[in-house]
Structure formats: C-alpha cells, structure tokens
Amino acid sequence: MSLAIAPQRRAFDSAPTPLAEARGVPARFIGVTRRFGQTPVLDGLDLDIPAGQFLAVVGESGCGKSTLLRQLAGLDAPSEGAVAIGGAEPVTRMMFQEPRLLPWRRVLANVEVGLPARVNKAEGRERALSALKAVGLADRAGEWPSVLSGGQKQRVALARALVSRPQLLLLDEPLGALDALTRIDMQRLIERIWLEQGFTAVLVTHDVAEASALADRIVLVDSGKVALDLPAPLPRPRRRGSPESAAIEARILDQLFGA
C-alpha cells in the first residue's frame, strides 16, 4: 500500500476541499523490489513522478510494467522498498485493459461505481451523468453494458475512473484491445481530459507510438529497472506521425532491440 509522503512534498497537495477541481499528486518509487517466488519482477526500481505529469511506461511483455502500476493502485505491495503517493487522501483510479463493467448494472450505474462513498445519491447521479457526457456517451446512460461496442465500453470505464475526480489516474494498456481508429479517438479523448483536469497520469503500454502520442515523459522498463528515461516535450494537442515523435519512438525501439 502507499505510504504518506514526507511533509515537504505536501507543497504538491491538491486543493483544500475534495470537491474543488482535482489536481495531480506526485508519486515515487523508492528502491522497490517485488518478487514472485524467487524471480524479482521489479528489482530496486527508483522512479519519481511529479504532480500532473503524463508518464508512459513501456517495455516488453513480462518486464514488470503492469506490476509497477499495481503497486501504485494498492493492488499489490512491494517485497522491499516503498511506494509513496502525495496528498492527504489521494484519489487513485485505475483503468484496466478490459472495461470490467458490471454487466448487471446499467451504464450510468456503472459510472456511479467510481464515486467516493460519501457522495449523496442525487449529486452522484449528476456527477456520473456529466462524466458520461465528457466521454460522449450521455445518451447511452440507460443501456446495459452488453449492447455497447468495445470502444464504448472502454469510454464508460474511463467515465467511471474520472467521476471521482482522481488525482492519479492509472492506465493499464486500456486501449490495447481496441481497433486502430477507435484507439486514436480514445487517445485524443484521454489527452483532452487530462489537459482539462490536470491529474497525474501513468500509462502502461506496449505501443511505443501510443506512448509518444500521449506522454510528457517515457520510461522504458527492462528486467525490473528503468532502462531509459526520456522526456517528450512536444506541443499539444499532438499530431500523429510528426518527425519529433518519430525520433522519440526510434530511440526507444533502438534501446529495446539494441539496434
């Protein structure tokens, strides 16, 4: 689980009331090792994520990038070291590779799953509706998830993650199962919402082009360590296939395949 971070980090804290506009919190890995049996999946990993940054974590399958995200989500604890997230009570939300909607709840009720427990019913409904509106699915609020397309389901999952106004949004290859066009659409949507809300975002992906389309900074994880830490200070909103992003992609691929 996450530890409270040292007092001097409180400067990054979010707004004083929980209902004020959400802002990002910083997060930090301090010498994190996670073993499954004898094999370390994360091996003394150090990583500092400033508040509001859009960080992409790329790597080959099995390199430990999903484990890294699960540490941030509190779904898994390090064997050694510590994971710290800033803020008094940071709201962390996760989007998975699958939409993971509750099939027995209608779309709106699925979004309401993401609400904090203390929100009353009427306000919760309103917030859920506006989150659905933000992902462009307000007109499908009364449907069962089973009638939605894959991209629509993932948009509902995004609304569910956003409805609690998270300060840290974790994205575990959320677009991996979508077709190419829907994927570009979703990338634009995520970028726009991130620009509006300013939360810290950590995107795990195996798609280097996706990382360079979205992230401020790209980290390559290999054998449980950070193998490459690359800033990607490109202007937003980004155009796909620009020479700058192509150059970044090339550097990452070179590192990966040692060309």
Partner: peptide, 23 residues
C-alpha cells in the same frame, strides 16, 4: 477481474458482495 476492479475502486467487503459477487 470484476472483484479486482471492486477492490481497486475502494469497495468494502460488504459492498463488494452486494454489488459484484451476489449478482
């Protein structure tokens, strides 16, 4: 996957049972 989602979204064991496991 749904149970893990419920945990990640801060459901208490009772909520998890009522919203996810029983249905």
């Amino acid at each position: 996957h749904l149970i893990e989602m419920g945990r990640a979204y801060g459901m208490t064991p009772v909520t998890l049972f009522v919203r996810v496991i029983l249905p």
